[in-house]
């Protein structure tokens, strides 16, 4: 089970990397920690012609707080977040999420940017960050642009990134002390990809996400309204109706476990 052939280019600057994406023959892929792409390449489910290695590119592994925003570089590893590198309430929430991603030896190399760009529907960050809200920072030939996390992921393994763009980081809200966060992942073994995710962040306004679907994670409007009205719990039965109202195409079992995840995430937020 060995990867198909590919070329490898180690970049020093972002500009170089963007240019390489533009000039590549065939399929070029950005490689962060390689912890999602590596297995897929070993299985030959992904066979890029060119791998663009960002590990030498400066400025992608910072964590900075600027006012009400935390800027997190794409190359920040899950392990650093697990170890508390992101400050404040936002950091505590992200720390909890990070600790449940795969295993420590994967978290040491896997990156938050890689995970979101890879856009596996069962991965943690796409759902967890959507609940947090904020922007994705993107580098392209015309320089830097931002996209809101809302709408960034458009499907399984599909995002709003252009072919010649690179995800460079995130600008996430700095949650105040009164903010409440809850994250509930349904799986059968620690570290496995999720069967269902419920993510709840109540900052300036409640954001409730149903994740680990067949497509992109989505916000559950009725749940957000309920929480905005000051209700501090959502029953499984109600969660089922709220999720079903958004027509996710679940069978009964999937609807159930997503509802349980949502209900329990709310419970954790108010615990």
């Amino acid at each position: 089970m060995k990867s198909a052939k590919f070329d490898h280019q180690r970049m020093v600057t972002l500009e170089e990397a963007v240019a390489a994406l533009g000039s590549a023959d065939g399929e070029a892929r950005i490689m962060g920690g390689g912890q999602s792409l590596g297995p897929m390449m070993n299985l030959r489910l992904a066979q890029p012609d060119l791998l663009i290695d960002l590990s030498r590119v400066g400025g992608l592994d910072g964590i900075e707080v600027a006012g009400d925003t935390i800027r997190i570089g794409a190359r920040v590893t899950h392990a650093r977040i697990e170890d508390g590198a992101v400050p404040g309430v936002t950091g505590a929430y992200m720390q909890f999420v990070a600790s449940g991603i795969s295993y420590r030896s994967v978290r040491n190399r896997g990156t938050i940017g890689g995970s979101v760009a890879h856009a596996d529907p069962s991965a943690d960050w796409p759902s967890a960050l959507l609940a947090l809200g904020g922007d994705v920072v993107i580098a392209g030939q015309d320089g830097e642009r931002r996209m809101p996390l809302d709408g960034f992921q458009i499907g399984p393994f599909a995002t709003g990134l252009g072919f010649e763009e690179i995800l460079t980081g995130f600008e996430l809200p700095t949650l105040g002390e009164g903010a409440k966060c809850g994250y509930y992942k349904v799986n059968r073994k620690p570290g496995e990809f999720a069967d269902a995710i419920g993510a709840v962040v109540i900052g300036s306004a409640p954001r409730v996400v149903c994740g680990a679907t067949e497509a992109a994670p989505f916000r559950v409007a009725a749940a957000e309204e309920r929480l905005a009205a000051g209700v501090a719990e959502i029953s499984v039965a109600d969660a089922r109706d709220m999720i079903a109202a958004q027509d996710p195409g679940f069978d009964d079992y999937d609807l159930q476990i997503h509802a349980v995840a949502l209900s329990r995430a709310v419970g954790r937020a108010f615990a």
Binding site: K2, A4, R44
Partner: peptide
């Protein structure tokens, strides 16, 4: 190498 043998399989 195994990788090259897998290329042949493909």
């Amino acid at each position: 190498t195994r990788a090259a043998a897998e290329d042949l399989v493909a």
